[in-house]
Design a protein around this nucleic acid. Structure first.
Lengths: 244, 244
DNA sequence: CGGCTCCTTACGGAACGCGGACGTCGGCGG
DNA sequence: CCGCCGACGTCCGCGTTCCGTAAGGAGCCG
């Protein structure tokens, strides 16, 4: 049932570094991860782990807390010093202090010994999935010009800078981003953005003005939300950066 | 002090939540589990179960699939949303689909009605023993910004320092950590965190404020849990270190 | 130049979020 | 058994933010 490779989206072929001084444990873990479709590398102690990481930077590290020579926490710290990498710690059961320490150093998850290899595999997948920031695509994100509108987060940016928009302004901009290049009458906007079939159309005018004040480089000469005389307004997507 | 410990000695005094709308069934099950040395709590329906769980997080849940109002599967899902907890499902005999559904949602075991109470007790012990070394699969540790939330241990830290959160505050923070960067209406939070479809929304406001008081550097100018005017709140994961 | 459209500004009121405080319930310890 | 205390849900007053409307001026077109 759980035989599938992690190819279903999460980290197919991701490189996992397993660090454990116990050959038996390392062997078992390696085997399971390998069968799950990961590329696995092994290290027996701290220095070895750092060397391996230097040779091939891993996507995730499974790290035994108890290591000969260098402490697992130290390894974690050094690793983190070189670059951001998710870490799953293996700790002795019930050793609560160790777990807390691990979390402080920045472990992304922990598994207590003795553990089920299958569970470890699941957690590896989970952490990898979590570590991967939202792919931005398929998330309903709207982009045009230098503008970005995220309906889910209710955030809008222009050239990376956050815009402080009110509800109406945000909805208005989002609507424009969804229908670029088309001209809309004020009545249409009132219906689509406000959800009203009646009302003072100057409301739309004023809100367009306010939006321009926050979005346009020069609100006096709008290039993004253009006026279509005798009709209404049109969003011009090709007016992102300053060309003159 | 120890009344009577369960046979195998696993989970003496473990807290078991029994959810069944049939008073007779609940009574019998409660009786047996109680005599087996467990601390038993009872709930008659879904919302009740979630409320009980909020008050005292159980070590295991015995859950009837058929419940008035909220579906057993839904209860299971919500419960799992708050933290990893083993679940044993009670299903109608031969209702194969239900069993499959139950296992998919993440039940750790199931018992078909009519069932022998003694068998149920045995399974409870078994699941507890199995689940003990490490909380069952599914969600692990949550990290974002300088925050850490461990649903299994029900513990949260900020920059390594432990946070003294109440039940609601913890659930709220955990939910935010699970859905970073998205804006949620108060109604959604009320539904997802409280499990209510109605109620005074100012409750959410107040708890957000209390959470801010413990999480934010400057509660007056929140950077982690942000207010989205006219909409609700949003958890901002990129608010870890001090930038100004 | 006249009429219409659009821009700009200002303002009152409503909606909203926040902080503080209170009453209640349940748990815990004396 | 009783009293204390923390957590929770509710309520109220205040300050802020936002919205819709109105009115005067500027711009566009015939």
């Amino acid at each position: 049932m759980e035989q599938r490779t992690p190819g279903a989206g999460a980290g197919a072929g991701s490189r996992v570094l397993v660090v454990d001084d116990d050959p038996t444990v390392a062997e078992i873990v390696t085997g399971y991860l390998d069968r799950a479709g990961y590329v696995v590398d092994r290290a027996g102690d701290g220095p070895d782990a750092l060397a391996r990481a230097a040779a091939h930077w891993p996507d995730l590290v499974v790290l035994d807390l108890m290591l000969p020579g260098m402490d697992g926490l130290e390894v974690c710290r050094r690793m983190r010093g070189r670059g951001p990498v998710p870490v799953i710690m293996l700790t002795a059961r019930g050793d609560e202090d160790d777990r807390i320490l691990g979390l402080e150093v920045g472990a992304d998850d922990y598994v207590t010994k003795p553990f089920s290899p299958r569970e470890l595999v699941l957690r590896v997948g989970s952490v990898l999935r979590r570590a991967r920031p939202a792919p931005a695509a398929a998330s309903g994100l709207l982009r045009a010009g230098g503008l970005t509108v995220d309906p889910a987060a209710r955030r809008a940016t222009k050239n990376g800078a956050e815009l402080a928009l009110t509800i109406r302004e945000f909805d208005l901009l989002a609507f424009f981003l969804r229908h670029p290049g088309r001209a809309f009458a004020r009545e249409e906007l009132m219906r689509e953005v406000w959800g009203w079939d009646f009302g003072d159309l100057s409301t739309v005018t004023v809100h367009v003005r306010r939006l321009r004040g926050k979005v346009e480089d020069d609100p006096a000469r709008p290039r993004i939300v253009r006026t279509v005389w005798g009709v209404g307004y049109r969003f011009d997507p090709a007016a992102g950066l300053g060309e003159e």
